[in-house]
């Protein structure tokens, strides 16, 4: 069981850090940009919606990288580190590790250069290398403007309709899920059946990744948490893939 899959409703936490900045340190912008570039250059984009001519983009990046990969890495972390590290610190660890595992860089290269920047303030302040093929950046911009939609046509009939009671299956998520753990084995009402079907970046052990209906479900909070822990006059909504549901 991973705490990252089961955050919803944890008791005993402190007050929230009401930090309205997107980036609290300038370096965080760089890892955000690297991750977004990886998504924009991912090798799956020739079969995405819309499709991109990704084989023709002159990048040496030939890997599959999506939100799903970033999330899976974060979900694999030591749970204390998950709380301990700031958002973009987790990204920096996961993404630099990916480039080493995939063989684009070696750990030694990364460590040596990091050490050089730490030891030599002139090197640390020097501009980044310039140049590169502008067609890479053209693809990145196309990706930003056109996206990577999970929506697909659906020929079948959704199993449930608005007003139906559904039970969330008690599925063990293994390594990656889009089902928050607090919802397992709870009963909700279908508020909306989204048009079409929705896939995921890759198949997960718990069953998403082929096109299927998605439902907006609404819960009475005491269907999820103990009655004495919830607030009156409130409701909880979430968008849930059909494979996670059965008739209640």
């Amino acid at each position: 069981m991973k705490i990252q899959h089961n955050l919803g409703g944890i008791e005993g936490l402190a007050s929230i850090n009401y930090e309205t900045l997107v980036f609290v340190e300038p370096w965080e912008k760089r890892i955000f940009g690297i991750h977004t570039a990886m998504m924009a250059l991912s090798n799956h984009l020739n079969t995405s919606e819309p499709p991109y001519p990704i084989e023709q983009v002159p990048t040496t990046f030939k890997s599959f990288w999506t939100w799903g990969h970033l999330r899976k890495g974060a979900e694999a972390m030591n749970p204390f580190d998950y709380f301990r590290f700031r958002y973009y610190e987790k990204w920096l660890g996961g993404i630099s590790g990916f480039f080493v595992e995939e063989g684009y860089i070696t750990q030694e290269e990364l460590d040596t250069r990091t050490a050089q920047f730490l030891e030599d303030s002139a090197k640390a302040a020097a501009p980044l290398p310039s140049g590169g093929n502008p067609a890479i950046d053209a693809q990145v911009e196309q990706y930003l403007r056109q996206g990577d939609s999970p929506k697909r046509p659906y020929a079948g009939t959704p199993k449930f309709k608005v007003g139906d009671k559904v039970r969330v299956k008690d599925i063990y998520p293994v390594d990656h899920t889009r089902l928050p753990g607090q919802l397992r084995n709870t009963v909700a009402t279908v508020a909306l059946v989204y048009e079409g079907a929705y896939t995921y970046f890759f198949p997960t052990v718990d069953g998403i990744g082929t096109p299927m209906p998605v439902y907006s479900l609404v819960w009475e909070p005491d269907a999820i948490w103990a009655a004495e822990l919830v607030e009156p006059n409130s409701s909880y909504y979430n968008d849930i893939f059909e494979v996670y549901l059965e008739a209640a």
């Binding site: 912008k29 760089r30 940009g33 690297i34 570039a37 250059l41 002159p58 990048t59 040496t60 990046f61 480039f99 684009y104 860089i105 290269e109 990364l110 250069r113 980044l128 290398p129 310039s130 140049g131 590169g132 093929n133 502008p134 890479i136 950046d137 990145v140």
Partner: peptide, 13 residues
């Protein structure tokens, strides 16, 4: 390193 190895350009980020 990513710029030098042609994964991204000096302008991508």
């Amino acid at each position: 390193l990513l710029i030098e190895k042609g994964i991204i350009t000096g302008n991508t980020v």
